[in-house]
Amino acid sequence: MRKTLMTGLALCALSVGQLAIADNHISDKQIETAVKARKAHMQLYAFHLGTLGAMAKDEAPYDAEAAQSAADAIAALAGLPQSGYWLPGSDNGSFENTRALPAIWAEGSDVGKKAQEFSAAVMAMQTAAGSGVDGLKAAMGPLGGACSSCHKEYRQSDD
């Protein structure tokens, strides 16, 4: 599982780079579909984080099985190929309905590194989630931090 996840993420990072180089004709329709897909992907992370977060905030009783299943779902999502919906030209400078900044595709982008840090936090949550509420609580910080680390650099702030 871990290896697959890491390889998946590494491949994602690589292919984003390759797409940036091979920027030939991508239609507006393709970009629109791509943006919808990645928002849906983010929404699924939020859904499963919600299960973990409710337990971490003592809003829901701790349930080892549900926690493990949510953490596994996040890991499975993180392992999905995503390069198809991070198309060049789908940044907020070229397309309206997104907050993704052009810096994602720009030279010197460390999106790949951030994806790896995210995967490390996800794996830590997978280890912790099922084995007690204290571990789950402790793993929430680094996981939220990994989300924020990318959103700080690569997502336009709200307006």
Binding site: H151, R155, Q156, S157, D158
Partner: peptide, 13 residues
């Protein structure tokens, strides 16, 4: 503590 909002979006900026 975690940067996660009640909707489980994360902080940015």
């Amino acid at each position: 503590k975690t940067g996660l909002t009640p909707e489980y979006d994360s902080a940015g900026g």
